[in-house]
Amino acid sequence: MNLFRLFGDLSHLASILILLHKIQTTRSCRGISFKTQALYVTVFVARYLDLFYDWVSLYNFSMKVFFISSSIYILYLMKVRFRPTHDPSIDTFRAEYLVGPCVVLALIFNYKFTFPEVLWSFSIFLESVAILPQLFMLQRTGEAETITTHYLAALGAYRALYIPNWIYRYFSEGVVDPIAVIAGLVQTALYVDFFYVYFTKVLQGQKFELPA
């Protein structure tokens, strides 16, 4: 474990806590894409079911349990508890266009053609694009509550921090995980536009608004 990865994981953890806080305090999931959240459940379940048969560490185990359970809880909040505040008519990105290609990519690119390994590859590819319905929704509405932008910033920072972690591991351990690295670069690149507006507007105290 190095500091980049630790802070990456903590940023990921923080993003989910921010999202939960936003939903609970505003009693609304306005501005949050249900499709993106459903894709995250898919990602976590596909990747972290190994917690039942592969022991890594207590840290690793607890994080996996937290990510699976919190993502399912968020779906519950959106679909049941605060259902009236969710507007499916602006959450129109076709998620199946993401899932299909990720299945195909996972069948081609994996470290071993076994069910758990293909599932792992699939989750890595799907995670890299799972934010697209959310970013698409943001693009459509052209604005976002500040708390939602903090959620997105923490979520984007998480994979971005994994990049120096991979560089560090390459030099310290001599090992590269090309599937994770390439997907991680794509994932981070998707946030570039968002981060530009976040740094130039939100962190200067202005509202997150896209130019018309």
Partner: peptide, 10 residues
């Protein structure tokens, strides 16, 4: 040395 999946990463 080489390429491998980092099993300890989340």
């Amino acid at each position: 040395q080489g390429t491998a999946r980092a099993k300890d990463e989340l």
